[in-house]
Every structure is written in C-alpha cells, then in structure tokens.
Computed example of a mutant assay.
Amino acid sequence: MKFETQTISVRFVQALLSNVVTRTDYDPSWLSNTGFAPELLNLQGARITMEKFAELYRTLAIHTDDETLGMFSLPLRNGTLKYLCLCMLSAPVLSVALNRFCNFYRLINVDVQFEVSHTPEGLVRIALHEVGHLGSSRVLALELMLMLVQGVSSWMIAKKIPFVRICFPFPKPEHAAEYKHLYPGPVYFNEPTTALYMDPAYMNEPIRQDQNSLRKFLRNAPMNWFYFLETERPNTYRVRSYLTERMGQPLGLEQVASALHVSTRTLARRLADEGSSFQRIKDTLRRDLAVELLNKTRIPVADIAHKLGFEDATAFNRAFRQWTGSAPGAYRKRLQ
C-alpha cells in the first residue's frame, strides 16, 4: 500500500484553515477546486488521504503566498523552502547542512529559532525555541516545524532518520494517535522544549541530493515531511503490506502468521511490542482504503464492502460509521 493512501484526521485541515479563512481575500474555491468537500470539516471523525492533505497545503500556500499559512508574525513567501534547500545542498555533510538550516531560519523567522547541540548522553538535539507568541496556531506550528526539519534532514541524506526521541512542550492532544504517521520515533509531551534527538552518526552522512531531485521534493511537499517508518515497526508494516493485496480474503492472525513464517503467538507478541495488534492493523487498513475508494472512485458501496472483505454492505456501513461517524454513502455525498 502506498503511503499516500494512508489517511489523516480532517482536524489537520481545520487547523490549516484557521488563519486562512480570516483573510479578506479568502475564497472557498481554494478548497473546492482541489476536490475537497468543505462539508467534511464539520463531520466528526472525517479523514482524508495524506496525498489530498499535501495537495491542500500546497494550494493554500500558493493562494496566500505564505508557506506557513499565517502561523507566524511574518509570512514565509512562496519559494522559501526552495531557497532553504538550495542553501543546504552544497554542504558536504548533514551537520553543515543543519547549521545552514538554523542560520536560514534565524534570518527569516522572528517567532521560532532552531538550535543544534549535543546532549550529555551523546545524542544530537535539534531544538525549536519559541521566541515570539504563536497564539492559537501554536500546536500546529510546532508540529509542522518538526515535520519540516525531519523531512528535509532525511531527504538530504536519502535516508529515513529514526529519531530516538521527539518532544513537545504541550499536553498530549486528542489527535496524538496520528503522530505515528508523522514522526519517525517515540513522542513525548509536556517536555521543556520542542526537539528531535538522534544518533550523532547521521551528522556525518554526506548530502546525496541535487537540484534535479529538489524539483520533485518541492513538487510533492509536504509529503516528504512525514512518513511511516518501516524500520521502527517492521512487523506492523509487514502485516499491513501482506493484507493490502488480500483484503477480499477472510484472513485471520493464524493465516497471516503462517504466511510470514512465524507462530501465531510470536506475531501477536511482536505486534503488541510495537503498540499494535492484528485487528487494529486490519481495521485501520480497511478504513484508509475505504476513504480512498469513496474519494477517488464511483465503485458502489456494496462492491467496496466486498473488496475490503466484509460479509455484506450492512457490516461495512456499521464499521465505517464507527470509524468516521458517518455512513459511507453519506460520506461520499459530501465529497461530491
């Protein structure tokens, strides 16, 4: 299953729009022209694909000429990310590139500043200090800035960096379950400083990108800022990948464990160690595929139920309502 087909709570769209809709030049067509149904904003439990979220982000940034969508005192004009990356590309190794990253932000942003340092435990800390008052956008601003630095860092060295620790200074939010798709490492809340911690060995990794690959990186942004880290939860990833092509088959834990050449007990234990379970993986996969199929196709609901392995449309309707708070038919109408 492509990462793009995984879904994210519509709450993030609501947060993106919080500053945009107050602009005097705001036009609802900015959303509708992307195929996003504004009605979903008021639907409890609604979700959109990562791909659609990234498209919305890019569209809003273009229309507002602000790549941070009003989250800071001064806008970051379109092209900011491009010139940031150009500054970093000529660095020999990641440590030099991150130093340029910090200096670049010191010049353009008066509300937040990045700092790279070493901890007594021997880890590298990339801290995000709040210099100004971030107001109601604070949580989203901190979330996105950490996604940005982790995404740019990993892309520069062409390796997904598995961060040792990811810290936020605010209490655990209601949408914290989404973080497993946003941050490659364990997340902690109520910490003194917003920060990423990583193995110092990555600082010596050479920069492996160039201006040609930068074009694709910018074209897909912010998709490259977040990702499902396969190495962090390998068993969860293997089960999800195996089920993706076989959703119409009545597979249980026993059959999947056998196909993956492990015992049922061992697979269940490994999934539990990763904070997951077979049923949770299956339900999440069904939910994400259902949202994608309802959004991108005209396949009848009954056929979607069959493709996803439900006994009948009634069972699918009941499950989808539990996932999103809406029946699949009503959900699709809001997308039209």
Rank of each mutant, 00 (worst) to 15 (best):
A54W: 09
E55L: 12
E55T: 15
T59Q: 13
A61V: 11
I62D: 11
I62V: 14
I62A: 11
H63L: 06
D65M: 06
D66I: 11
T68S: 00
L69A: 02
M71T: 11
L74G: 00
P75K: 12
L76K: 13
G79F: 08
L81T: 11
L81P: 04
L81A: 01
L84W: 15
L84V: 07
C85S: 01
C85M: 13
C85R: 06
C87L: 11
M88E: 03
L89A: 05
A91D: 12
P92V: 00
P92G: 02
S95A: 14
V96F: 14
V96M: 01
A97H: 14
L98G: 01
N99M: 05
R100P: 11
R100I: 02
C102Y: 08
C102I: 05
F104G: 01
F104S: 03
Y105K: 00
Y105T: 09
Y105H: 10
I108A: 00
N109S: 07
V110H: 10
D111W: 07
D111Q: 09
V112I: 15
V112W: 01
F114P: 03
E115W: 08
S117P: 06
S117M: 07
H118V: 14
T119G: 02
T119F: 06
E121H: 08
E121N: 07
E121Y: 08
E121V: 12
G122N: 08
L123G: 02
L123T: 07
R125W: 12
R125S: 02
I126R: 00
I126V: 15
I126N: 00
I126Y: 08
H129D: 05
H129M: 04
